[in-house]
Design a protein around this nucleic acid. Structure first.
Lengths: 263, 263
DNA sequence: TCAAAAGTGTTTCCAATACACCCATGA
DNA sequence: TCATGGGTGTATTGGAAACACTTTTGA
């Protein structure tokens, strides 16, 4: 932390955080038929991390998660839900190779006057509550900051080395997404306002991890009665042009409260 | 805390707890056709609480929850799952009338030499992870301790005043139970080894909160192929005697991993 | 006119539901 | 023998799944 103002502010903030409590966000973004997770790569560290942070002692946890997402994506009103709290004794910075390396590399950048405080802070036992967020990948304006050199969408099929238990966090979020697919605003949150039925189908397929029948998918979805049909989309391809659809908010929320039945 | 050894031990333990972190257990027990929650009533306090506690800094949270349940019920190997973490700024001892009274009454019993430490401890902001447990009510040997004068099964339809946000915790656990009914070991955990089909049906009905068709319930359950049929149960009532059933562990676990389909 | 993808139709199967019927039991 | 609750049978409905047929589009 050679940047004076950043380091000094961060250290000052430590006193305002609830000690031992952190939060992490598994942000799913959908783009080009692929389900992605938002990941950060910190400077001088050879592993990636989930966007996360600490809890200001006068702030609600959910608000803290929204703040973290706003900083990274520029988006507000993101769909966000808590799905698990990770508290294992074996999730610390000293547990796996990536984390050991990461903390060592970061430590080497700390100024001496901060070293003791920071070391103590990062070697606490942390209880981390994990949130799952759904956003339309292309709407997000991904932003790095002083600590992070990269902030990117990474396909869930191609995850890099991750610090701490962040790989497990993503794994569990995926499970949750799969099981809860009927109760989450999948289409609404992950797709642009207007989309084709095969867009929607590919999205569902990327979540449930299997092929679905095209004809049945279309009929089942339309029967839900939550879609508005718009003009056709001329793709320029030599085949029939698909209709664009959007989601009727009112009917959608009504249906979500009951749980969309879809398997 | 007039009991010297208890109070001294408790205060000494405070230093071994992770500060700001607690856990609470919503324990469901089924008895006589009614779904109950395990609640405690502390001495000198006019409101009830969920069984809960703090996290020893060298202990896994799940183990801590099991310990709490063991102390209260004498049972090990209880089905237990985390379902939410409560962290609101407005869940403290000063937020509602019951909690204010409770802490005041408890405070009046503290010895002067402990007062400062205890007051500070209980006025922290606590992040509490809530667990849901399922047990066969009649197997539990409910036990009070120095702090609690009562430890009882309370029907979920007849809940008393509760401290903090414990009413919300129970509400949310019930919702979770309802939604996850197909993925939880309902029958296995909540009923005795041998039971009749109408026992099982009444249990399901008390969870989903509606009447189910008798004939269809029976056939659907038996078609799952996880039941063993035993001798008839002679109730002494003037009607056909029902068969007793038990659950075949192997098949049951296989089915649970896929999710029992039941609505 | 052809290939490719979209839209719609058809058939089959099975689960869910509603309800009927007979059976066993003890008063 | 009667009321009561238990076990099983049956008809209907609707969704899921598999797959066929038609339509639209640009090459």
């Amino acid at each position: 932390m050679k940047n004076k103002s950043f380091a000094d502010n961060f250290v000052k903030d430590l006193l305002r955080f609830v000690p031992g409590v952190s939060l992490d966000c598994v942000v799913f973004g959908y783009r080009d038929g692929i389900l992605n997770v938002l990941l950060l790569k910190h400077r001088n560290v050879d592993a990636w991390t989930l966007p996360g942070g600490f809890l200001l002692s006068d702030m609600e946890m959910q608000d803290a998660a929204h703040d973290i997402l706003y900083k990274r994506t520029g988006l507000q009103d993101i769909f966000l839900t808590q799905y698990h709290t990770f508290s294992s004794l074996h999730r610390g910075w000293d547990v796996n190779e990536q984390s050991r390396l990461a903390i060592a590399q970061v430590q080497s950048t700390w100024e001496v006057k901060h070293k003791e405080l920071l070391t103590k802070w990062f070697h606490q036992r942390f209880i981390s509550t994990a949130y799952l967020a759904l956003i339309e990948a292309d709407k997000a304006l991904l932003t790095t900051d002083y600590l992070s050199e990269r902030c990117e969408w990474i396909p869930i099929t191609d995850l890099p080395n991750l610090v701490l238990d962040h790989a497990q966090m993503i794994q569990m979020a995926l499970e949750y997404l799969k099981v809860q697919i009927n109760y989450l605003p999948i289409g609404k949150s992950l797709l642009p306002d207007k989309f084709t039925m095969s867009d929607l189908q590919t999205l569902y397929e990327s979540i449930v991890q299997r092929k679905l029948d095209r004809g049945n998918f279309q009929r089942k979805m339309l029967k839900l009665g939550i879609f508005k049909r718009h003009e056709k989309l001329m793709t320029g391809a030599s085949n029939k042009a698909p209709f664009l659809y959007s989601i009727d908010d009112q009917r959608y929320h009504l249906l979500l409260s009951e749980g969309i039945r879809f398997r």
